[in-house]
Each structure stands twice: as C-alpha cells, then as structure tokens.
C-alpha cells in the first residue's frame, strides 16, 4: 500500500510541475494531496488525514482552481520554460537530492516501538490545553493569522474606484 501511494505521489508531483496546462496541474496536485492523506491513514493519524482531505484537497485546491479560471483560459498552454531556469532547477536537484538523501540515510534514528493510538479526545484536550503539551497559544495565533489573512485577501482583491476608471 505504501509503495502504491508513494508512486502516486511522486508521479503526480512530477506531472504537476511539468504539464503545460495550468488546470491539469491543479488537478494533479489534488491527486498528490489525496495520496498524502492516504499516507496519513497508513500512519494511523485519521484525524489529520480527514483534515488534509477536507481542507487541502477540498478547500485550497478548489480555491486555486477558481483563481485559475479567473485568470486564464482552460486551453491556454504555458510556454516552455527558459533554458536558464531548467539549468538552475537541474543544478538544485542534482546537488540537493543526493545531499539530503545522504544525510538521511547516514543518520540512525532512535525508533520507538510502542504504539499509542491517537483518539480525538486527546487531540481536542491538547489543542486547547494550557498546561504541559497544551497548544492553545499557537492555536490562538493561527486563528488570528487566519483572520488577518482573510481581511488582507479581501482588501487586496477588492476593486477600488480608481482602478475601475483605469480599466
């Protein structure tokens, strides 16, 4: 199962960044995200998998697809990237991947064998807890961040009158 999901992830990741059509690339990303959610299931993090599917796959990708539809035509094909970009990407990959893999494979992890099931109640109490292992502060932070970004998004995307006259 893991190998199947990994293959899906890698193949569709590559296709996401190579397909010339923007809309398709978004759809491929959707597959990648769903496969990632599958990995979460494998790791027994059901809640996070559900969040991944609903929020990422359901929310963000839909948002992106909407914006694609707003800004370009479906049939529109992207031009081939400039050579210097290909070169620099190739350099990053050729240097980066072996480096990281080498580091990872050379490191011995102290694996822990005990298996603790993660239940929803634990997640809930820890997320809103203030004591040890409590995450209420980052939780509040992220809620403020979300609010701020929502307002920012509205302000930026709003058409103001001056722009209307220009366009």
């Amino acid at each position: 199962m893991f190998y199947l999901l990994s293959t899906v992830i890698l193949v569709f990741s590559v296709m996401t960044i190579t397909t010339p059509k923007v809309l398709r690339s978004a759809v491929y990303l959707l597959f990648v995200l769903i496969a990632t959610a599958g990995l979460y299931f494998l790791l027994n993090y059901e809640f996070l998998a559900a969040v991944q599917i609903t929020l990422y796959a359901g929310g963000i990708v839909v948002l992106i697809i909407f914006s694609i539809l707003l800004t370009s035509h479906i049939s529109h094909k992207l031009a081939r990237p400039a050579p210097w970009k290909l070169w620099s990407a190739a350099i990053s990959l050729i240097v980066g991947i072996p480096l990281v893999l080498w580091i990872i494979l050379n490191h011995t992890f102290q694996q822990s064998a005990n298996e603790v099931p993660v239940d929803m109640k634990l997640i809930g109490t820890q997320l809103l807890g203030t004591g040890k292992n409590g995450y209420v502060l980052p939780f509040e932070l992220i809620s403020i961040l979300l609010l701020a970004s929502m307002i920012v998004a509205i302000v930026i995307a709003k058409k103001d009158k001056e722009d209307k006259q220009h366009n």
Partner: peptide, 20 residues
C-alpha cells in the same frame, strides 16, 4: 522571482554543505 528562489536554494545548500 525564480532567480531569487534559485539563489535562496543554492545558498541553503551551500550552508548545509559547509556545515557538513
């Protein structure tokens, strides 16, 4: 943008390499 991105990645890789 992408030049910057490449510079950023390259910089990060160089730092990792030199640390190693």
């Amino acid at each position: 943008l992408q030049q910057y991105a490449f510079a950023f990645v390259a910089g990060a890789l160089i730092i990792v390499l030199s640390l190693l």
